[in-house]
Structures are given as C-alpha cells and as structure tokens.
Design a protein around this nucleic acid. Structure first.
Lengths: 239, 239, 239, 239
DNA sequence: TATGAATGAGCTTTCATTCAT
DNA sequence: CATGAATGAAAGCTCATTCAT
C-alpha cells in the first residue's frame, strides 16, 4: 500500500560546500574503517565530525552514499600517494621495479594515516562487497594489476602466456596482502613479528626474493622447453 | 560493539540437550557465515531453525555466546574433516606433502558445505577478531602451521633458519588464501577465472610449482653460501 | 547499493493474541479517524493503547498494516451494526425500504461511537485512497449499492434502464453523505443545523420525500412515454 | 497538528514582490492539492517553484501561512472564473438558472486547471478544516448558496418556508459534489463511468431533471396543502 | 532580496532481550 | 523445557525552520 507522494530529489550538494562536509568524510573514514559499514552509526560519525545528525543526510543523502564517498575519496588519496608505478620509470630493470612495487604496496598497507584506513576499508569490502567496489577495481586496482603484469611479463620473458602471467601476479600480490588480511592470526602465531618499518623492509625483501626465484625458474624452464620443443606448453599453462 | 565474551553460565544447558540446540547451531552457522555477526538477527536464525525467538537466549545465553559456540563447532568439524597432515604420512616426499597440503587447503576453502562456511567465518574473524579466535588459532591453525613448517623445513634443508621457514610458510599459505579473501576482486579483474574443481586443481599445481621453485632456489642458495661461507646469513634472515 | 541481507518474515501474529492487540486497534481507530493516517503517530497510538512503541510492529508489522487492520475491523463492525437491508425484508414496500435505508445510513454516519469513526475513516479514504479501499468497496460498499439499486429499480418500474437506476441511486446516496462530507461548511453556513437524533430523523424524511418525488416522476414519465411511444428513450438515458 | 493561523506579519512582503512569490503560490497550489497540507514538503514546493528552501519562510513566514495564501488565491481565481450567477441574468427562468448552476458547478469541479485544484483543496478542507475555511465560506460559498436559494425559492413558490429551501438547496448541491468527493468509490463501483465533457453534460442533465421533478412536486404539494388548509405545515417543516 | 548550510525535534522501524506461563 | 508477548534502547532518516552572508 503506497499513499500518494511527490518525488523529492535529495539535495546532495556536490563538491566542497564547506568544512562540515570534509569533517564528515574524515570522521566517517575513521569510523567505517574501525567498525565497518553496518556497525558504524550516523550519530557517532556526526558527533566525531562535530556536526548535526542531519548533516549526513544533507551532504550525502544517506549513510550508504556517505560510505561510497568515503571509499572513493580514500581511493583517490591512496592512488595519489602511492602511484602504481611506485615512482620507477618503465625502463628500469624489472627486478628493481618488482622490488619497488612490493615495498610500496606494503608501506601503503602498513603505514599509519589515511592510507592504512584505506587498507581496512578494502579488507572489509572483500568480505562484504558493496556497489562501490566496482568503481574501485576499475580505477585503482586494475591499473595496479596491469602495472604488475607488465613487470611479471618482463621477468617471465616474451614466451610466457597470459595465464601464467596472471597467476604469478596473484602469487606476488597474495604474499603482500596476506600480512594485512591475516594480521590477527599472524600476531597470535608469531608474536615476535612486528610491523616496524625495518621489518616491513625485510618482509619486502623476502617476498621479492621468493617471487623472483620462482619467476626466474619459470622463465628458464620456459626457455629450455621452448628450445627443446617449440610446441611445448608447460603443465598448468594449458587452458 | 564489544565481542569480548561475557561469562553467563548458569542457565546454559551443556552438551546435547535436544534437537533445538542442534538446529540453532546449524542455522546460526549458515546465517553468521552469510551476513556476519552483526547483520545476523536472532529472529532470522531462530526462524531458520524452526525455533522460538527466545530459544537462543535460553540455550546459549545470548547472541554472542551462540556465535562463540558456532565458531567452536565449525572449527571442530573442519579439523575432523581436514586433518592437518592432509592424509599423507610424514615419510612421504616433502614435495608430495606440499602438493597435498596446498590441494587439500584449497578444496577445503572452495568446496561447499560446512567447511566453506568455516572459511567464511574465519575470514570475518580476520576483519573483526573475537575472543574465540585465540582458541581457534591454538587448536586448529597452529597445528596446521607446524605441519606446513615441517614440510618447508624439509624442502629448505636443515641449514635453514626458523625465520626463513616461517616466512616461506606464509608465502605458501598466502597464495592459497588469496583467492578466498580477495574473491570479489579476482572475479571483477578476471571474470574468466572460475572455481571449478578442475580449476582448483590447476591452481594448486601453480601454487605448488611456484613455491617449490622458490624453495629449491632458497635451498640451493643456502647450501652454496653455506659451502662458501659457514657464517653466512642471507639478507633478511638475520635479526 | 544493497548489502547482503537475509529476508526476515515479520512475525505478525494473527487473530487475538492478547488484550494489547485489541487496545492497539481501538486506539488506532480513534487516532486515525481524528488526524488521518499520515498525521497519526505510532507513538501516540501506542501511548493511548498503553503499549510499547514496538507493539505496533510486533502485532501488525508496520503502521500501514495497522491502518489496514483498523479499516477492516471498522468495516466489519459497521456492517454488523447496520446491515445493508436496514432490517427490512425484501418484500416490504420499496418506499418503506428506501426510508429505512436513508435513515439507517444517516444514523450510522452521525451516531457516536465506533461507527462514526468509520465514517471519518471512509471520508479520509475518499480524499486519499489507500490500497485498503478496494477491499472495503468490495465487501461493504458494493453490497449496499446493490441493495439500494434494487429499491430504486422497484420504484422506477421495470422499464427503467440500468444507467438511470445507477444515477438515481447516486442522487439518493449523495444527499445522505453530503451532511457528513461537508459538515464544516454546513455548520458555518447554517449554524442552526444540529445533528440531534430528532434532526437526523427530519433530515431522513426530507431526503426520502425529495427522492421519492423525483423517482415517482421519473417512473410516471417513463410509463407515459412508454405508452405513447414504444421506442422511447428519455433524454439522459441514452448512452 | 495545529492549523490555527498564527500571525507572523513582519517580514512578509505584501502583494507582488517578484516572480518567486508567484511561482511559490503556483507550485504550492499544485502540491497541496495533490498530496495535502501535511504530506506536502516545503522542499518539494520550492523545488517545483525553482526557488530556495528558505523561500517559503522568507515570503510567507511558514508553511501554514503559505497554505493560507494558496487557499485565498485559489478562491479568488475560482470566484473570478465562475461567478455565482453562472452567467445568467436573474430574470431568466428558474429552471434554466438551475440547469446553468448545476452545469457550471460540475464543470468547475471536473475540468482541469486551477479550478479543479481549488476543488481538491476544498475537499481536503472538509476533512481537516483550517482557519482559512471561514473566509472562504463567507466570500465564496455563502454567495453561491444565496444564489442557489433564490433559484430554489423561485421554483418552490413564495409559500415555501426557509427550511425547505435550505434543505432542497443542499439536496441539489449534494448531488453535484458527490461525484467529486466520492470519486474513488464511484470509479471502483462503476468503472464505466468516465468524466468526459459529454458525460458531465449528461450528469448535469440528470441532476437537474431529478431535482426539478422533486422541486415541482414539493411546490405542487405545498400549493395543494396551502389551498386545503391555511395552517398547514408539511412534515419536517415545523420546528 | 535571497540563499546555501546547518539544525533539532521527531518520525518509523529494528532488534536483542526479558518475563510470565 | 520452551514459548508467545512485550519491552526499551537505539538506529536511519525526514522536515520545517533558522542563520550568516
């Protein structure tokens, strides 16, 4: 049963319309990262932002739209602070670029501040994806993925097929993300592991060496097989 | 939200006290895995269990205690179904044991049924750990970790130090969990990736080969360095 | 954007499940009649019913369902108290049945108590129909309409066509409802008009005599024209 | 809800103070007619008027004062477009004047445009009268009522007492308003009834003929009784 | 003269929990 | 052992209104 009603377009002012909007984004970023979308209350966010309860509705329409805005902004900042090329030119040796990629990724995830919040938000998106994830994959994750694939391709050699490149990319990324996603377990299993900057560096070193070793092996194996048998397709590379 | 378990012992009947309790556990497992602790409602669980709204409070004290019970039970079933040794005797070649470990882990996570549910619950625990996590790490995860470490140690050779073993273990496990934790992103980045049993097998093959390549390289490097310099400690292994 | 969620069927216990439900229906009837659906607040209703704010949700699902229940109940009572035949057998003279119909209708509308409330609710439905109106028309209004049509048909004679019957029915009903629908204006135009039982009787007398005069004239006219010209169709009766 | 008009005079600019005020009146008229005072939101009105949210408060003081202004303006337009004499001179035959009155009234109510809107607003005033109703009755309805009474008096003859005139007037008006007030029910009971201009004409014809028949009968009866018994007072006319 | 931002009161609804039976 | 009824706290959201500019 629906009583007659006029459609009222929500106001939702765009762009910066004062400091309150910024405060809300900031506070919401913190709260959403801390307790997740559902557990976060509009009241708590507004209080932390020093704004009225109705402020969220006025500036963003509703809680969900605020969340989307937070995620988008968080994504923008992360991309700006840690560009996919990790600051290295495409001409640099692939080994160096891989090392830079791994190190930058780890720092992004473990350094404090807004980018760490981004990591939390993303982890929550993995568990309970929202509509905002599509945009983030498109604008943030895919470019990173492409960049990494180029590095991996360079390391595997021109004869590597796409599936191998893709799988190796994921093997690299997985090692980076693991410490973030499974931090509670890692902390309990190995309390001696801390995430100090020095430890992060050593971690980056391990991941890079582990991955390079595997990739060089794949590359050599590929070349050898290639030389021995032009029609060769290694196990696991067929589709 | 405060998930620290409050002890409300008195009226909670222990053990099997009727089918309702079982139904509640079963239903709660499903619901908690699907939507998480917070989003799950006692009403929905009771309805799915064919029980009264007050049943949860009667049998478990409150929603939180029910969640703890679900996690504990889920863990018990998972351990029973997938023992840490993955069904291979300790005398089997380390390469085989690694392959079996990887394959069993992937199947456990991606096959349907209660163990997949357990995976979901664990993933949520990673984001928002509850007091129940300690027990799970102690009784389920650490044994698995120990088992994997033994395999890795066998592959790296006796001269490998503990830190290297630990890091390599995590490099292996991370590759397995990645597809589970980041499934939403993987699906969006590579829609062609499916998780059919065949694909799972190919994935297990890739992870095993990637890891073995790296581990063999580490092992050889270790031996070489060892031969050349008895006091050698590779970069990242000191500390 | 819609986060995953389990469908929870609202409880909505049916039938009498205690005195609270009755109290709510009673209070809601009063409040809805007084201020209308929109202006009525669940809080006010519950307070008047001596129940908790959540009681409406528990017993009826939501405010709208409560409204529907109120309307249905109100309709049931009205039908029970004032049956369409107004207590006269079908064999009674049509003039008498018309007079009884008019009188009963007026009493139903102007007498105090729950049936007066029903009049208010119906008047509001006219202005802003809800989904509940369909059911009311079907179960309450149409039977009354049919009964009145039979009386009118008897008065107009067998040669009257359906359209004339319909229009005359509405001419009769309109005079009854007018005093209710336009009461605020009537009160202001003619402050001397009161709605005491005696006045209601005189009113019923006027409406009956006015209508009978018109109907007898129509009937006679019809017969005359019929006698003079077998193919006659009076002005306004053609379609 | 308290609709008694509070006088908040000071900042309200009088008369034409720019196009915004006109736009607001226009938009508010539409919205109030469509959804009623309560359901109408200041935002929706301002949006439709292309004005700022604060415009209503600036130009009219508050929502209630805007409503009063709308009703007054609506009334002014209706009076201007449909004068009470319906365009016929007082010398015209009473039958013709009655027919013109009925026809004009029906058209006013059922034709689209501002006068139909006025009908809607008036219907809502019947259900929930505001302070504005007094003025409307005084300036718009009473003159119409007086005019109709003159016609009825002419038809009933000089011997008709005032009460009879009044009751017959209402019997006539009620038939006109019925189709408007009870449109939702009429539509459901008789879906074949449309309100095309042709149908409106046939309706006007029916109402006129029905009423004239009754009035002529009353007139004749009156004369007869008068002739037979100088002290006669028909049933229902005493008091 | 007019506005965009901001507010506070109050709305419906949800939900874990309790209690008498 | 188990339940249906009932509750209180709190959630998201709406809206007329105000205020500095």
């Amino acid at each position: 049963m629906c009583l007659t009603m006029v459609e009222t377009v929500p106001p939702t002012p765009a762009g910066d319309s004062g400091p309150t909007r910024e405060h809300l984004l900031e506070a919401a970023g913190t709260v959403f990262a801390e307790v997740g979308f559902r557990a976060a209350t509009v009241r708590a966010i507004c209080q932390q932002a020093g704004a009225n309860v109705a402020a969220v509705n006025y500036h963003f329409g509703d809680k969900e739209a605020l969340y989307a805005a937070v995620l988008k902004e968080s994504c923008r900042v992360a991309l700006e602070k840690f560009p996919p090329d990790a600051g290295l030119p495409p001409e640099a040796p692939a080994e160096n670029r891989l090392r830079a990629f791994v190190q930058a990724f780890l720092q992004r995830i473990f350094s404090g501040g807004p980018s760490a919040r981004h990591g939390q938000l993303m982890a929550r998106e993995m568990i309970e994806p929202t509509a905002a994830l599509d945009g983030i994959v498109r604008e943030e994750i895919r470019p990173m993925s492409v960049r990494l694939s180029e590095i991996i391709r360079a390391l595997l050699g021109p004869s590597a097929n796409e599936e191998t490149v893709r799988r190796c990319s994921m093997s690299v990324v997985s090692q980076i993300l693991f410490y973030h996603h499974c931090r509670p377990v890692v902390n309990r299993l190995f309390p001696e592991v801390t995430f100090t900057p020095e430890e992060i560096d050593r971690l980056a070193d391990h991941i890079t060496r582990f991955s390079l070793a595997a990739l060089h092996h794949f590359s050599a194996e590929n070349d050898t097989e290639r030389r021995d048998n032009p029609n060769f397709a290694s196990q696991g590379d067929h589709d």
